[in-house]
Nucleic acid binder design. Structure first.
Lengths: 244, 244
DNA sequence: CGTCGTTTTGACGTATTTCAACTTGAGTGG
DNA sequence: CCACTCAAGTTGAAATACGTCAAAACGACG
Protein backbone atom coordinates (compact mmCIF):
# COMPACT_ATOMS: atom_id res chain seq x y z
CA UNK A 1 0.00 0.00 0.00
CA UNK A 2 1.11 3.58 -0.67
CA UNK A 3 4.65 4.16 -1.76
CA UNK A 4 6.15 2.41 1.23
CA UNK A 5 8.26 -0.53 0.18
CA UNK A 6 9.50 -3.41 2.26
CA UNK A 7 13.28 -3.22 2.13
CA UNK A 8 15.76 -6.01 2.57
CA UNK A 9 19.23 -4.75 1.52
CA UNK A 10 21.97 -5.84 3.87
CA UNK A 11 22.34 -2.61 5.85
CA UNK A 12 18.65 -2.61 6.68
CA UNK A 13 18.25 -6.35 6.97
CA UNK A 14 18.16 -6.29 10.77
CA UNK A 15 17.93 -2.66 11.77
CA UNK A 16 17.14 -3.53 15.37
CA UNK A 17 20.62 -4.86 15.96
CA UNK A 18 22.08 -1.37 15.83
CA UNK A 19 18.95 0.59 16.70
CA UNK A 20 19.99 3.60 18.79
CA UNK A 21 16.67 3.82 20.55
CA UNK A 22 16.25 0.13 21.14
CA UNK A 23 16.24 0.56 24.91
CA UNK A 24 14.18 3.69 25.20
CA UNK A 25 11.47 3.28 22.58
CA UNK A 26 8.33 1.19 22.72
CA UNK A 27 10.18 -1.86 21.42
CA UNK A 28 11.58 -2.32 24.88
CA UNK A 29 8.53 -3.53 26.75
CA UNK A 30 10.00 -2.81 30.14
CA UNK A 31 12.24 -5.86 30.22
CA UNK A 32 15.60 -6.57 31.74
CA UNK A 33 18.78 -5.85 29.83
CA UNK A 34 19.57 -8.53 27.26
CA UNK A 35 16.02 -9.78 27.29
CA UNK A 36 14.59 -7.47 24.71
CA UNK A 37 16.20 -8.72 21.54
CA UNK A 38 13.93 -11.74 21.63
CA UNK A 39 10.74 -9.84 22.23
CA UNK A 40 9.60 -6.98 20.07
CA UNK A 41 11.50 -7.20 16.84
CA UNK A 42 9.36 -6.07 13.93
CA UNK A 43 8.40 -8.66 11.36
CA UNK A 44 9.24 -6.36 8.49
CA UNK A 45 10.20 -2.79 7.79
CA UNK A 46 8.97 -0.06 5.50
CA UNK A 47 10.29 3.32 4.46
CA UNK A 48 8.71 6.47 3.19
CA UNK A 49 9.70 9.80 1.75
CA UNK A 50 8.90 13.10 3.41
CA UNK A 51 5.26 14.27 3.32
CA UNK A 52 3.91 10.87 2.60
CA UNK A 53 0.92 9.25 4.29
CA UNK A 54 1.96 5.97 5.81
CA UNK A 55 -1.50 5.00 7.01
CA UNK A 56 -5.03 6.29 6.88
CA UNK A 57 -7.70 6.40 9.53
CA UNK A 58 -10.06 3.44 9.40
CA UNK A 59 -7.84 1.46 7.05
CA UNK A 60 -7.62 -2.17 8.18
CA UNK A 61 -4.18 -3.30 9.25
CA UNK A 62 -2.82 -6.60 10.53
CA UNK A 63 0.20 -4.81 11.97
CA UNK A 64 1.00 -2.31 14.64
CA UNK A 65 3.51 0.20 13.28
CA UNK A 66 6.47 1.54 15.15
CA UNK A 67 8.51 4.50 13.98
CA UNK A 68 12.21 3.65 13.79
CA UNK A 69 13.68 6.74 12.13
CA UNK A 70 12.40 10.17 11.17
CA UNK A 71 9.51 12.42 12.15
CA UNK A 72 5.78 12.04 11.54
CA UNK A 73 2.47 13.25 12.90
CA UNK A 74 -0.97 11.81 13.41
CA UNK A 75 -4.00 13.92 12.61
CA UNK A 76 -7.71 14.12 11.99
CA UNK A 77 -9.54 16.12 9.34
CA UNK A 78 -12.97 17.61 9.92
CA UNK A 79 -15.45 17.23 7.06
CA UNK A 80 -14.83 20.83 5.95
CA UNK A 81 -11.06 20.47 5.83
CA UNK A 82 -9.98 21.89 9.16
CA UNK A 83 -7.17 19.78 10.57
CA UNK A 84 -6.19 18.81 14.10
CA UNK A 85 -2.81 17.26 14.73
CA UNK A 86 -3.16 14.76 17.57
CA UNK A 87 0.50 14.09 18.21
CA UNK A 88 3.95 14.21 16.75
CA UNK A 89 5.79 10.94 16.38
CA UNK A 90 9.48 10.51 17.06
CA UNK A 91 11.72 7.45 16.66
CA UNK A 92 10.69 4.76 19.10
CA UNK A 93 7.03 5.77 19.22
CA UNK A 94 4.23 3.38 18.46
CA UNK A 95 2.44 5.04 15.58
CA UNK A 96 -0.79 4.63 17.45
CA UNK A 97 -0.98 3.50 21.03
CA UNK A 98 -4.29 1.82 20.20
CA UNK A 99 -2.63 -0.33 17.56
CA UNK A 100 -2.10 -3.44 19.71
CA UNK A 101 -5.83 -3.68 20.31
CA UNK A 102 -7.63 -2.73 17.17
CA UNK A 103 -7.66 -3.96 13.63
CA UNK A 104 -7.69 -0.64 11.87
CA UNK A 105 -5.59 2.47 11.99
CA UNK A 106 -6.95 4.95 14.49
CA UNK A 107 -5.65 8.03 12.74
CA UNK A 108 -4.02 9.20 9.58
CA UNK A 109 -0.25 9.48 9.82
CA UNK A 110 1.87 11.66 7.58
CA UNK A 111 5.63 11.94 7.57
CA UNK A 112 7.67 15.10 7.98
CA UNK A 113 10.95 13.54 6.88
CA UNK A 114 12.09 10.34 5.29
CA UNK A 115 11.17 7.61 7.74
CA UNK A 116 11.71 3.98 8.50
CA UNK A 117 9.08 2.08 10.41
CA UNK A 118 8.68 -1.49 11.63
CA UNK A 119 5.64 -3.71 11.41
CA UNK A 120 4.68 -5.78 14.44
CA UNK A 121 2.15 -8.48 13.78
CA UNK A 122 -0.79 -7.68 15.98
CA UNK A 123 -1.79 -11.25 16.71
CA UNK A 124 1.63 -12.21 18.01
CA UNK A 125 1.88 -8.89 19.85
CA UNK A 126 -1.40 -9.63 21.57
CA UNK A 127 -0.46 -13.15 22.52
CA UNK A 128 2.76 -11.80 24.01
CA UNK A 129 0.78 -9.29 26.01
CA UNK A 130 -1.61 -11.97 27.22
CA UNK A 131 1.17 -14.37 28.14
CA UNK A 132 3.20 -11.98 30.29
CA UNK A 133 1.66 -9.62 32.86
CA UNK A 134 4.72 -7.39 32.60
CA UNK A 135 3.97 -6.75 28.93
CA UNK A 136 0.39 -5.96 29.75
CA UNK A 137 1.37 -3.53 32.46
CA UNK A 138 3.83 -1.83 30.17
CA UNK A 139 1.20 -1.38 27.47
CA UNK A 140 -1.34 -0.24 30.03
CA UNK A 141 1.16 2.30 31.30
CA UNK A 142 1.66 3.61 27.77
CA UNK A 143 -2.10 4.00 27.38
CA UNK A 144 -2.34 5.88 30.63
CA UNK A 145 0.56 8.14 29.68
CA UNK A 146 -1.23 8.85 26.45
CA UNK A 147 -4.46 9.67 28.24
CA UNK A 148 -2.55 11.97 30.58
CA UNK A 149 -0.96 13.71 27.65
CA UNK A 150 -4.28 14.10 25.85
CA UNK A 151 -5.99 15.45 28.94
CA UNK A 152 -3.18 17.94 29.41
CA UNK A 153 -3.51 19.04 25.80
CA UNK A 154 -7.24 19.42 26.33
CA UNK A 155 -6.51 22.02 29.01
CA UNK A 156 -4.02 23.70 26.70
CA UNK A 157 -6.49 24.08 23.83
CA UNK A 158 -9.40 24.96 26.08
CA UNK A 159 -7.84 27.39 28.47
CA UNK A 160 -4.47 28.69 27.35
CA UNK A 161 -3.45 31.65 25.19
CA UNK A 162 -1.71 31.35 21.85
CA UNK A 163 1.78 32.02 23.19
CA UNK A 164 1.33 29.49 25.98
CA UNK A 165 0.10 26.82 23.60
CA UNK A 166 3.02 27.24 21.26
CA UNK A 167 5.51 27.33 24.12
CA UNK A 168 4.07 24.17 25.64
CA UNK A 169 4.09 22.32 22.37
CA UNK A 170 7.73 23.19 21.73
CA UNK A 171 8.68 22.38 25.33
CA UNK A 172 7.00 18.98 25.09
CA UNK A 173 8.91 18.24 21.91
CA UNK A 174 12.18 19.37 23.48
CA UNK A 175 11.65 16.97 26.37
CA UNK A 176 11.07 14.08 24.05
CA UNK A 177 14.02 15.02 21.84
CA UNK A 178 16.26 15.13 24.91
CA UNK A 179 15.11 11.66 26.03
CA UNK A 180 16.22 10.38 22.65
CA UNK A 181 19.54 12.25 22.63
CA UNK A 182 18.47 14.07 19.50
CA UNK A 183 19.43 17.45 20.94
CA UNK A 184 23.05 18.64 20.67
CA UNK A 185 23.93 22.04 22.14
CA UNK A 186 20.22 22.55 22.67
CA UNK A 187 19.63 22.45 18.94
CA UNK A 188 18.48 19.98 16.33
CA UNK A 189 16.86 19.58 12.98
CA UNK A 190 13.24 20.53 13.19
CA UNK A 191 11.11 19.58 10.20
CA UNK A 192 7.91 20.94 11.78
CA UNK A 193 6.48 23.85 9.78
CA UNK A 194 4.46 26.71 11.26
CA UNK A 195 1.44 25.18 9.60
CA UNK A 196 1.92 22.01 11.68
CA UNK A 197 2.32 23.93 14.90
CA UNK A 198 -0.88 25.74 13.98
CA UNK A 199 -2.79 22.53 13.38
CA UNK A 200 -1.54 21.11 16.67
CA UNK A 201 -2.34 24.19 18.76
CA UNK A 202 -5.61 25.16 17.11
CA UNK A 203 -4.23 28.45 15.78
CA UNK A 204 -3.57 30.03 12.39
CA UNK A 205 -0.18 29.55 10.73
CA UNK A 206 0.09 33.33 10.57
CA UNK A 207 -0.51 33.77 14.26
CA UNK A 208 1.92 30.97 15.07
CA UNK A 209 4.49 32.88 13.04
CA UNK A 210 3.90 35.97 15.17
CA UNK A 211 4.30 33.97 18.38
CA UNK A 212 7.52 32.36 17.15
CA UNK A 213 8.85 35.72 16.05
CA UNK A 214 8.04 37.18 19.46
CA UNK A 215 9.95 34.41 21.19
CA UNK A 216 12.84 34.79 18.79
CA UNK A 217 12.97 38.56 19.39
CA UNK A 218 12.96 37.92 23.13
CA UNK A 219 15.80 35.45 22.80
CA UNK A 220 13.89 32.38 23.94
CA UNK A 221 13.97 29.98 21.02
CA UNK A 222 14.91 30.24 17.40
CA UNK A 223 13.00 28.15 14.88
CA UNK A 224 14.15 28.82 11.36
CA UNK A 225 15.06 27.03 8.19
CA UNK A 226 14.17 23.63 9.59
CA UNK A 227 16.25 24.07 12.74
CA UNK A 228 15.31 24.53 16.36
CA UNK A 229 17.64 26.21 18.82
CA UNK A 230 16.70 26.61 22.47
CA UNK A 231 18.34 29.73 23.83
CA UNK A 232 16.61 30.36 27.16
CA UNK A 233 14.78 27.28 28.35
CA UNK A 234 13.77 28.72 31.71
CA UNK A 235 11.98 31.62 30.06
CA UNK A 236 10.31 29.21 27.67
CA UNK A 237 9.10 27.29 30.67
CA UNK A 238 7.86 30.47 32.35
CA UNK A 239 5.84 31.29 29.25
CA UNK A 240 4.48 27.74 29.13
CA UNK A 241 3.49 27.86 32.80
CA UNK A 242 1.95 31.30 32.44
CA UNK A 243 4.02 32.65 35.36
CA UNK A 244 5.20 36.13 34.47
CA UNK B 1 -12.08 10.83 53.53
CA UNK B 2 -14.14 13.93 52.72
CA UNK B 3 -17.79 13.84 53.60
CA UNK B 4 -18.43 10.56 51.83
CA UNK B 5 -19.58 7.86 54.21
CA UNK B 6 -19.75 4.15 53.73
CA UNK B 7 -23.39 3.20 54.07
CA UNK B 8 -24.84 -0.11 55.13
CA UNK B 9 -28.60 0.37 55.78
CA UNK B 10 -30.69 -2.45 54.37
CA UNK B 11 -31.87 -0.74 51.21
CA UNK B 12 -28.31 0.00 50.18
CA UNK B 13 -26.78 -3.16 51.57
CA UNK B 14 -26.42 -4.79 48.16
CA UNK B 15 -27.22 -2.08 45.64
CA UNK B 16 -25.94 -4.16 42.74
CA UNK B 17 -28.80 -6.62 43.09
CA UNK B 18 -31.26 -4.06 41.76
CA UNK B 19 -28.84 -1.85 39.87
CA UNK B 20 -30.61 -0.56 36.75
CA UNK B 21 -27.39 -0.16 34.83
CA UNK B 22 -25.83 -3.40 35.91
CA UNK B 23 -25.69 -4.71 32.36
CA UNK B 24 -24.65 -1.57 30.57
CA UNK B 25 -22.14 0.08 32.90
CA UNK B 26 -18.51 -0.76 33.45
CA UNK B 27 -19.40 -3.31 36.12
CA UNK B 28 -20.32 -5.71 33.35
CA UNK B 29 -16.92 -6.59 31.96
CA UNK B 30 -18.36 -7.92 28.74
CA UNK B 31 -19.47 -11.24 30.18
CA UNK B 32 -22.36 -13.52 29.45
CA UNK B 33 -25.73 -13.04 31.11
CA UNK B 34 -25.85 -14.43 34.63
CA UNK B 35 -22.08 -14.40 34.87
CA UNK B 36 -21.61 -10.86 35.99
CA UNK B 37 -22.95 -10.96 39.52
CA UNK B 38 -19.87 -12.85 40.62
CA UNK B 39 -17.39 -10.57 38.96
CA UNK B 40 -17.35 -6.83 39.52
CA UNK B 41 -19.32 -6.17 42.67
CA UNK B 42 -17.88 -3.24 44.60
CA UNK B 43 -16.35 -3.98 47.98
CA UNK B 44 -18.09 -1.03 49.57
CA UNK B 45 -20.17 1.98 48.67
CA UNK B 46 -20.02 5.68 49.40
CA UNK B 47 -22.40 8.55 48.94
CA UNK B 48 -21.98 12.26 48.54
CA UNK B 49 -24.06 15.39 48.43
CA UNK B 50 -24.21 17.67 45.43
CA UNK B 51 -21.14 19.84 44.73
CA UNK B 52 -18.86 17.71 46.78
CA UNK B 53 -15.39 16.54 45.75
CA UNK B 54 -15.23 12.77 45.94
CA UNK B 55 -11.57 12.50 45.04
CA UNK B 56 -8.62 14.75 44.33
CA UNK B 57 -5.93 14.49 41.72
CA UNK B 58 -2.79 12.79 42.97
CA UNK B 59 -4.44 11.50 46.12
CA UNK B 60 -3.44 7.88 46.75
CA UNK B 61 -6.26 5.37 46.54
CA UNK B 62 -6.44 1.59 46.96
CA UNK B 63 -9.75 1.53 45.11
CA UNK B 64 -11.09 2.20 41.67
CA UNK B 65 -14.34 4.13 41.97
CA UNK B 66 -17.42 3.51 39.91
CA UNK B 67 -20.37 5.89 39.78
CA UNK B 68 -23.64 4.10 40.62
CA UNK B 69 -26.10 6.98 40.83
CA UNK B 70 -26.03 10.68 40.06
CA UNK B 71 -23.91 13.04 37.97
CA UNK B 72 -20.31 14.16 38.41
CA UNK B 73 -17.44 15.59 36.40
CA UNK B 74 -13.71 15.21 36.33
CA UNK B 75 -11.55 18.28 35.88
CA UNK B 76 -8.13 19.88 36.08
CA UNK B 77 -7.22 23.29 37.41
CA UNK B 78 -4.38 25.36 35.96
CA UNK B 79 -2.14 27.09 38.49
CA UNK B 80 -3.91 30.41 37.94
CA UNK B 81 -7.37 29.00 38.50
CA UNK B 82 -8.57 28.36 34.96
CA UNK B 83 -10.50 25.10 34.86
CA UNK B 84 -10.87 22.42 32.23
CA UNK B 85 -13.54 19.77 32.58
CA UNK B 86 -12.22 16.52 31.14
CA UNK B 87 -15.41 14.54 31.15
CA UNK B 88 -18.85 14.23 32.64
CA UNK B 89 -19.61 11.06 34.57
CA UNK B 90 -22.93 9.26 34.42
CA UNK B 91 -24.14 6.19 36.31
CA UNK B 92 -22.13 3.15 35.26
CA UNK B 93 -18.96 5.07 34.44
CA UNK B 94 -15.62 4.27 35.96
CA UNK B 95 -14.66 7.51 37.65
CA UNK B 96 -11.32 7.33 35.92
CA UNK B 97 -10.51 4.86 33.23
CA UNK B 98 -6.93 4.84 34.46
CA UNK B 99 -8.03 3.68 37.90
CA UNK B 100 -7.42 -0.04 37.40
CA UNK B 101 -3.75 0.64 36.72
CA UNK B 102 -2.60 3.40 38.96
CA UNK B 103 -2.46 3.95 42.68
CA UNK B 104 -3.59 7.53 42.78
CA UNK B 105 -6.54 9.44 41.41
CA UNK B 106 -5.82 10.82 37.98
CA UNK B 107 -8.15 13.77 38.27
CA UNK B 108 -10.30 15.69 40.69
CA UNK B 109 -13.93 14.63 40.63
CA UNK B 110 -16.78 16.81 41.81
CA UNK B 111 -20.44 15.88 41.98
CA UNK B 112 -23.31 17.72 40.36
CA UNK B 113 -26.01 15.87 42.27
CA UNK B 114 -26.23 13.53 45.19
CA UNK B 115 -24.33 10.44 44.16
CA UNK B 116 -23.65 6.90 45.16
CA UNK B 117 -20.43 5.25 44.10
CA UNK B 118 -18.86 1.85 44.57
CA UNK B 119 -15.29 1.02 45.50
CA UNK B 120 -13.52 -1.76 43.65
CA UNK B 121 -10.33 -2.97 45.26
CA UNK B 122 -7.60 -2.34 42.70
CA UNK B 123 -5.50 -5.36 43.58
CA UNK B 124 -8.36 -7.80 43.11
CA UNK B 125 -9.49 -5.91 40.00
CA UNK B 126 -6.00 -6.28 38.56
CA UNK B 127 -5.75 -9.97 39.35
CA UNK B 128 -9.11 -10.47 37.66
CA UNK B 129 -7.86 -8.65 34.61
CA UNK B 130 -4.69 -10.70 34.54
CA UNK B 131 -6.51 -14.01 35.00
CA UNK B 132 -9.00 -13.57 32.16
CA UNK B 133 -8.09 -12.26 28.72
CA UNK B 134 -11.70 -11.21 28.20
CA UNK B 135 -11.45 -8.83 31.14
CA UNK B 136 -8.25 -7.42 29.76
CA UNK B 137 -9.73 -6.90 26.35
CA UNK B 138 -12.76 -5.19 27.84
CA UNK B 139 -10.60 -2.80 29.83
CA UNK B 140 -8.35 -2.19 26.84
CA UNK B 141 -11.44 -1.41 24.78
CA UNK B 142 -12.55 1.12 27.39
CA UNK B 143 -9.14 2.78 27.28
CA UNK B 144 -9.25 3.00 23.51
CA UNK B 145 -12.77 4.40 23.59
CA UNK B 146 -11.54 6.99 26.02
CA UNK B 147 -8.60 7.89 23.81
CA UNK B 148 -10.94 8.18 20.83
CA UNK B 149 -13.22 10.44 22.80
CA UNK B 150 -10.33 12.61 23.97
CA UNK B 151 -8.89 12.91 20.49
CA UNK B 152 -12.30 13.91 19.18
CA UNK B 153 -12.60 16.54 21.88
CA UNK B 154 -9.14 17.78 20.95
CA UNK B 155 -10.43 18.54 17.46
CA UNK B 156 -13.48 20.22 18.96
CA UNK B 157 -11.48 22.57 21.16
CA UNK B 158 -8.83 23.23 18.57
CA UNK B 159 -10.84 23.70 15.44
CA UNK B 160 -14.51 24.24 16.13
CA UNK B 161 -16.56 27.36 16.80
CA UNK B 162 -18.37 28.09 20.04
CA UNK B 163 -21.78 26.98 18.80
CA UNK B 164 -20.36 23.75 17.40
CA UNK B 165 -18.56 22.94 20.64
CA UNK B 166 -21.65 23.44 22.75
CA UNK B 167 -23.82 21.47 20.34
CA UNK B 168 -21.35 18.58 20.28
CA UNK B 169 -21.06 18.48 24.04
CA UNK B 170 -24.83 18.37 24.47
CA UNK B 171 -25.20 15.82 21.71
CA UNK B 172 -22.59 13.57 23.32
CA UNK B 173 -24.40 13.77 26.62
CA UNK B 174 -27.73 13.01 24.96
CA UNK B 175 -26.26 9.87 23.40
CA UNK B 176 -25.00 8.66 26.73
CA UNK B 177 -28.25 9.52 28.49
CA UNK B 178 -30.17 7.56 25.88
CA UNK B 179 -27.95 4.50 26.35
CA UNK B 180 -28.87 4.58 30.02
CA UNK B 181 -32.59 5.13 29.44
CA UNK B 182 -32.37 8.39 31.32
CA UNK B 183 -34.22 10.28 28.61
CA UNK B 184 -38.02 10.27 28.57
CA UNK B 185 -39.80 12.18 25.81
CA UNK B 186 -36.39 13.54 24.84
CA UNK B 187 -36.07 15.32 28.18
CA UNK B 188 -34.43 14.74 31.52
CA UNK B 189 -33.03 16.42 34.58
CA UNK B 190 -29.88 18.26 33.69
CA UNK B 191 -27.79 19.45 36.63
CA UNK B 192 -25.05 20.86 34.37
CA UNK B 193 -24.74 24.65 34.74
CA UNK B 194 -23.59 27.01 31.99
CA UNK B 195 -20.40 27.38 33.96
CA UNK B 196 -19.71 23.64 33.55
CA UNK B 197 -20.44 23.71 29.85
CA UNK B 198 -18.05 26.63 29.63
CA UNK B 199 -15.29 24.78 31.46
CA UNK B 200 -15.80 21.74 29.25
CA UNK B 201 -15.82 23.65 25.96
CA UNK B 202 -13.15 26.21 26.75
CA UNK B 203 -15.59 29.13 26.58
CA UNK B 204 -16.95 31.75 28.96
CA UNK B 205 -20.16 31.05 30.88
CA UNK B 206 -21.58 34.20 29.35
CA UNK B 207 -20.82 33.13 25.82
CA UNK B 208 -22.21 29.67 26.52
CA UNK B 209 -25.39 31.41 27.64
CA UNK B 210 -25.55 33.23 24.31
CA UNK B 211 -25.13 29.97 22.39
CA UNK B 212 -27.79 28.18 24.45
CA UNK B 213 -30.18 31.08 24.03
CA UNK B 214 -29.59 31.05 20.27
CA UNK B 215 -30.41 27.35 20.11
CA UNK B 216 -33.46 27.85 22.28
CA UNK B 217 -34.69 30.71 20.07
CA UNK B 218 -34.20 28.51 17.02
CA UNK B 219 -36.15 25.70 18.63
CA UNK B 220 -33.33 23.20 18.84
CA UNK B 221 -32.89 22.47 22.53
CA UNK B 222 -34.15 24.00 25.72
CA UNK B 223 -31.87 23.96 28.75
CA UNK B 224 -33.43 25.74 31.70
CA UNK B 225 -34.03 25.33 35.37
CA UNK B 226 -32.00 22.16 35.57
CA UNK B 227 -33.85 20.47 32.74
CA UNK B 228 -32.83 19.54 29.23
CA UNK B 229 -35.35 19.13 26.45
CA UNK B 230 -34.33 18.15 22.94
CA UNK B 231 -36.73 19.66 20.45
CA UNK B 232 -35.03 19.24 17.09
CA UNK B 233 -32.26 16.67 17.27
CA UNK B 234 -31.50 16.71 13.56
CA UNK B 235 -30.83 20.44 13.60
CA UNK B 236 -28.68 19.98 16.68
CA UNK B 237 -26.72 17.42 14.76
CA UNK B 238 -26.40 19.72 11.76
CA UNK B 239 -24.97 22.41 14.00
CA UNK B 240 -22.59 19.90 15.59
CA UNK B 241 -21.40 18.67 12.22
CA UNK B 242 -21.06 22.19 10.87
CA UNK B 243 -23.21 21.40 7.83
CA UNK B 244 -25.44 24.39 7.17
C1' DC C 1 -38.73 38.81 52.79
C1' DG C 2 -34.00 38.82 51.92
C1' DT C 3 -30.18 36.04 50.24
C1' DC C 4 -27.64 33.54 47.10
C1' DG C 5 -26.56 31.09 42.98
C1' DT C 6 -27.56 31.27 38.22
C1' DT C 7 -28.89 33.31 34.04
C1' DT C 8 -29.58 37.33 31.12
C1' DT C 9 -28.54 41.74 28.94
C1' DG C 10 -25.82 45.44 26.92
C1' DA C 11 -21.71 47.99 25.97
C1' DC C 12 -17.19 47.59 25.13
C1' DG C 13 -12.33 45.55 24.62
C1' DT C 14 -9.16 42.43 22.55
C1' DA C 15 -6.95 38.23 21.01
C1' DT C 16 -7.01 35.96 17.08
C1' DT C 17 -8.55 35.40 12.29
C1' DT C 18 -8.83 36.73 7.65
C1' DC C 19 -7.13 38.59 3.47
C1' DA C 20 -3.80 40.18 0.33
C1' DA C 21 0.68 41.51 -0.85
C1' DC C 22 5.43 40.82 -0.42
C1' DT C 23 9.95 38.43 0.91
C1' DT C 24 12.94 34.66 1.25
C1' DG C 25 15.28 30.57 0.05
C1' DA C 26 15.64 26.00 -2.06
C1' DG C 27 15.15 23.35 -6.20
C1' DT C 28 14.98 22.88 -11.26
C1' DG C 29 16.04 23.35 -15.78
C1' DG C 30 17.99 25.82 -19.65
C1' DC D 1 25.12 30.93 -13.92
C1' DC D 2 20.74 32.91 -14.26
C1' DA D 3 15.58 32.71 -14.67
C1' DC D 4 11.79 30.36 -13.06
C1' DT D 5 8.80 28.16 -9.80
C1' DC D 6 7.04 26.86 -5.51
C1' DA D 7 6.73 26.22 -0.56
C1' DA D 8 7.35 28.64 3.61
C1' DG D 9 7.49 32.66 6.13
C1' DT D 10 6.58 37.72 6.92
C1' DT D 11 3.94 42.07 7.26
C1' DG D 12 0.17 45.20 7.78
C1' DA D 13 -4.69 46.50 7.81
C1' DA D 14 -9.37 45.25 8.63
C1' DA D 15 -12.90 42.08 10.40
C1' DT D 16 -14.89 39.20 13.99
C1' DA D 17 -15.62 35.86 17.39
C1' DC D 18 -15.23 35.69 21.81
C1' DG D 19 -13.98 37.74 26.37
C1' DT D 20 -14.66 41.19 30.03
C1' DC D 21 -17.18 43.99 33.07
C1' DA D 22 -21.15 45.63 35.47
C1' DA D 23 -25.84 45.63 36.38
C1' DA D 24 -30.30 43.66 36.36
C1' DA D 25 -33.62 39.73 36.43
C1' DC D 26 -34.89 35.44 37.96
C1' DG D 27 -35.96 31.58 40.75
C1' DA D 28 -34.98 28.48 44.79
C1' DC D 29 -34.59 28.36 49.48
C1' DG D 30 -34.56 29.28 54.24
Amino acid sequence: MNDSRTQTPEAICNPCKHCPIRDTGTCDLGLQAGEHLTTLTPDSFGTSRAREKICRKGEPSPDALILCRGWAYRFDVLPDGRRQILDFLLPGDLISICAPFRNEHSGTVQTLTKTMFGRLNRKSLQSKILSEPRYLMRIAKSCIDDIDRLEGTLGDLGRRSAIERVARLILGLIRRLEERDMLTDMACEFPVRQEHIADATGLTPIHVGRMLRQMRDEGVIDIRKGWLRVIDESTLQRIAEHTH
